[in-house]
């Protein structure tokens, strides 16, 4: 059980975030939930790359081979996505802003019809 508890935590985070998106009454809240769903992938990736007793995969002050290091590949994946995720969140918030201006609401359940 202990061997895969961190992965279950990531799955739990994803489902909680999806529940939040499904029941959301405010698009800003929806975007926040999407950010949580995205973060669950970081937990999953970093959990998969963890090595017991491992240190950061940076050899500027530790000699190569002197200590075990955690998996750098998953760290690189998470790293790029943090910044990219932030800009995508900004794009979605810009959409929300325009919705508020054009339709007068940010409640996704009140947005029923398409309007030019």
């Amino acid at each position: 059980m202990n061997g895969f508890l961190p992965f279950l935590a990531a799955g739990w985070m994803l489902l909680v975030a999806l529940y939040g998106m499904v029941t959301s009454r405010n698009l800003v809240h929806t975007v926040g939930c999407l950010a949580v769903a995205q973060s669950s992938t970081y937990v999953m990736l970093l959990g998969a790359g963890y090595r017991r007793g491992g240190t950061a995969p940076v050899f500027s002050d530790t000699a190569p081979g002197s200590r075990p290091v955690v998996d750098p590949v998953v760290q690189a994946l998470a790293l790029t996505d943090v910044v990219v995720g932030a800009t995508v969140t900004a794009l979605l918030l810009a959409l929300t802003l325009q919705l508020r201006k054009r339709h007068g609401t940010v409640d996704p359940q009140a947005l029923t019809g398409l309007k030019g």
Binding site: R51, P57, F59, P68, V69, D71, A76
Partner: peptide, 28 residues
């Protein structure tokens, strides 16, 4: 999945070797 904290990271080990071969200290 391999258990959390496993010592076996085939991609990680290869990435470290390749980064050191390209003389980059920060493997990430």
């Amino acid at each position: 999945l391999p258990p959390f904290g496993t010592a076996r990271h085939p991609y990680g080990a290869r990435a470290v070797t390749a980064a050191l071969a390209h003389r980059t200290a920060n493997v990430v």
